[in-house]
Simulated scan of single mutants.
Amino acid sequence: MNYYIIYLIMTKPEQIPIQKHITYDELLYLIRHEKYARVLTRLYFIKYRYEGNSVIISSERVGISSPVGHRWQKRWNESGYEGLIPRYTGGRPPKLTQQQKDQLKQILKSRNGWTTNQVRELIINEFGVEYCLMQIRRILKEFGMKYAKPYPHDYRKPDDADEILKKHS
């Protein structure tokens, strides 16, 4: 620990006290039975705060910055254990709606032999949305479609070529 942190600890009293929503034994029980690593780290932070360590020391012990420690403590003080559970917002909304994806899937099933470039052009023409080829592959995988190396099809081949072949052989 460097001298600057010691100086801060000695000169600055703890500004926001930790609220003890549960007993220390209940906190230890939660730590022993926690499944998720992120929540477990946050519980250890709270444990160190319960033991009387400052936010800076507790943050250092679990390997986070002190602003993150202050945020975790604020969430603990406001909501208890539920405040420590990560809040995922789901990320960026998709460019295609579920209805458009269903429509795309029907169009793709109507014909075999699509290339990713053809699917990309289809999405641009039908829906006015542009995706990179990697995202096209993800969409196809989401649909349960497999993509393979395309081979050329002879446009002159009749639809009943297999039956004609059986008759002549």
Rank of each mutant, 00 (worst) to 15 (best):
R156M: 10
K157E: 08
L104I: 00
A37P: 07
R87M: 04
Y4S: 14
K146V: 13
K95A: 07
Y24L: 14
T97Y: 04
Y24N: 06
S58Q: 08
D25T: 14
D159A: 15
Q135P: 07
R138M: 03
V62M: 10
S110K: 12
K35L: 11
H168Y: 14
Y24W: 05
R42M: 05
L122E: 03
G144L: 04
T116E: 06
E163S: 14
D162G: 13
E121H: 07
F143A: 12
V119K: 05
H33Q: 09
K149G: 06
L165Y: 05
Q19S: 08
G90F: 02
E51C: 08
R49F: 03
K146A: 14
R71K: 15
A37F: 04
P158S: 06
L165T: 12
L84D: 01
R156S: 11
E14K: 09
I56K: 10
L140C: 07
E51H: 04
E60Y: 08
K167Q: 13
Q103W: 02
K157C: 10
G52M: 04
D159R: 15
N125E: 10
M10L: 15
T115A: 08
L96P: 00
R138F: 03
N53E: 11
Y3N: 13
S110F: 01
I164N: 06
G52W: 00
G128A: 04
K167S: 14
R120Q: 13
F127C: 13
A37D: 09
S54H: 00
E121V: 09
I64A: 15
G80P: 12
G128P: 07
I64R: 13
Y3H: 14
Y155M: 13
E26M: 04
Y4G: 08
I64C: 15
E126N: 00
I56Q: 11
I124V: 12
T97W: 03
R92N: 05
L40D: 05
I46G: 05
I139L: 07
E78G: 05
R61A: 10
L43D: 00
I64E: 11
L43Y: 00
T116P: 08
L8H: 06
E34I: 02
W76I: 06
